[in-house]
């Protein structure tokens, strides 16, 4: 699923405030190529803001977030595939949405139809997005992220709205991508699901509270979920 080399994602002392209210404070971590990095934290912890900064959709007040040492704006189109929310023009068909993305990324149009089939939207590709369920929109957003066969995947709550088959398909996609050398950074509240797919975990609550590899979660009774609770409760600190 990936035809491009993976590149490390690096957050370096990233801070961001809105209206004087800090949302991110001195966030630093690296998500490495060939690994799936889980990005967890409670609602309002700053995960989406951090991902927006990485993708160039918001500017940090200080610090920087890079892919392969460069801001995303300087990378070749399609280096990064991302899904932050299932947004698409309601009057456009699913196929049309992907054709727009394909044109923007220089991806051949011929890739669109097979990809729609891959995400389970083959029969809905020519229907307008306004008729899609939330789960179908999520699948469409994931298709857009996978369209350029990126070396770096950034996904925000990609399992939202997916049925069990979809979640399993996504899990296989993420593992396959990492196995082929891609960098995968994925945020999720479904810790049990995340635990099955991640190599690394970063726990965020305005700042990085904890980061470490999956093996560390295996040492904890209750796995990632218990580790997360311990970190949030303050009984575990940055590893």
């Amino acid at each position: 699923m990936t035809s491009r080399p993976g590149l490390d994602i690096a957050f370096e002392r990233v801070s961001k405030a809105y209206g004087g209210r800090p949302v991110l404070e001195d966030v630093s971590f690296t998500a490495r190529a060939g690994q799936v990095t889980g990005f967890v934290g409670r609602n309002g912890a700053g995960k989406t803001t951090a991902l927006r900064i990485l993708l160039g959709l918001a500017a940090p007040d200080s610090g920087h977030a890079t892919v392969g040492g460069r801001p995303i704006a300087e990378l070749a189109p399609g280096t990064v595939g991302a899904s932050l929310e299932p947004g698409a023009h309601p009057a456009r068909t699913g196929e049309g949405h992907l054709l727009v993305q394909a044109a923007a990324l220089g991806v051949p149009q011929a890739r669109v139809r097979p990809l729609l089939g891959e995400v389970g939207l083959a029969s809905a590709g020519r229907k307008k997005v306004k008729g899609y369920s939330f789960g179908m929109r999520q699948r469409l957003a994931l298709a857009a992220a996978l369209l350029p066969e990126p070396g770096v995947l950034v996904l925000d709550e990609p399992t939202n709205g997916l049925d069990p088959d979809g979640i399993r398909w996504l899990r296989d996609q993420l593992r396959s991508a990492a196995a082929h050398g891609a960098t995968v950074l994925v945020s999720s509240h479904l810790l049990g699901e995340l635990e099955q797919v991640v190599d690394e975990v970063v726990v965020l609550d305005r700042t990085v509270l904890w980061s470490g590899d999956r093996a560390a979660t295996l040492d904890v009774d209750g796995g990632l979920e218990q580790l997360y609770q311990d970190v949030i409760a303050g009984s575990r600190r940055i590893s």
């Binding site: 460069r70 300087e74 990085v208």
Partner: peptide, 24 residues
């Protein structure tokens, strides 16, 4: 593994050359 780093200079943005060729 995922590591915490304190902004090593070598990983600062390599250039400010702007959008790649053909972007427009």
């Amino acid at each position: 593994m995922t590591t915490l780093s304190l902004a090593p200079d070598r990983s600062r943005p390599a250039s400010r050359a702007g959008a790649p060729p053909g972007a427009l």
